[in-house]
Amino acid sequence: MTVVFSFFLLTMLIVTAIAIVRIRDLFAAVMLSGIFSLLLAANFFLLDAADVALTEAAVGAGISTVLFLSALAMTTDKEKAAPSNRIIALIVVTAMTLALIYSTFDNPAFGDPDAPIHQHVAPWYLETTREAIDIPNVVTAVLGSFRGYDTLGEVFVVFTAGIGVLFILGAPSGKPRQTTDLHSEGLRHYLVPRVVGRMLTPFILLFALYVQFHGDYGPGGGFQAGAIFAAAIILYALLEGEKSALEAIPRSWLIAMTAGGALLYSAVGVAGMLLGGNFLDYSVLADNPVAGQHIGILLIEAGVGITVTGVLLSIFHAFAARDKF
């Protein structure tokens, strides 16, 4: 039955995508892509990917919407009608679509448990997680331990993006902009958002911590927690103004967090090396290998969370600061 639901959700996904591409108002396009993310996340949820659904919602609907809006505020929100090679592009795209659809007919049937993809490595993960790591969330086990090296890479991708945005937006501007003080004011003068927001912010922070440390047992983990944590601070900045947010967590802290999280993660890996295992081998961290795995995953998830929070907030502030030139 879920297949039928998916059918409707997927159709809506396509409709939204077409609308996003066609609409000239970039502001509307960004809102629609928020909706697109929610739809996609709902689909992921139907397909048993709870962790991914959580991440997609936090990133797609939350963080990237905020980023797009910050960028729009500094550029423009109307796409100009322009001469374009639309026809050629359409032909290329249509041809590729048909070719690809043709190739899908041989794919293993959707959800077939006997497909090779489910036979080779996946069962091993499920079994070994029970024995060697002993946490319920297999996704976290794979993410944190079996493929912890990938996740280390992921943290450094985020780290790179963070320093990249700081670097690019740290460049001296071509020309000074007129100062509008609106941003620093925030939405402070609007009663309802302010009251609701103030009430909510601590709860969101608390919830972020829950997502961080509950990652072993349910959907969640360092990345999602970091995104939610950052979202809470962004909410605070929206309500109370940039300045107050920066007073709460100054820029130098953010840099330290960005670097510190990445260092924490790597340090856990190096510790494994020093204690006689391979890089990122957590089993040697404690006398009992399973306990070692627990410690390792806990620490690296903390590292992920710290870096992601630091980077996302740095990026947000970098965009916001640019606006006030």
Partner: peptide, 19 residues
């Protein structure tokens, strides 16, 4: 450990450098 260190050495230095 050399294959791992090949990546880790420059990667770990990056966060230190920005501090």
């Amino acid at each position: 450990h050399l294959p791992a260190l090949q990546v880790i050495v420059p990667m770990l230095t990056a966060p230190l450098v920005i501090l």
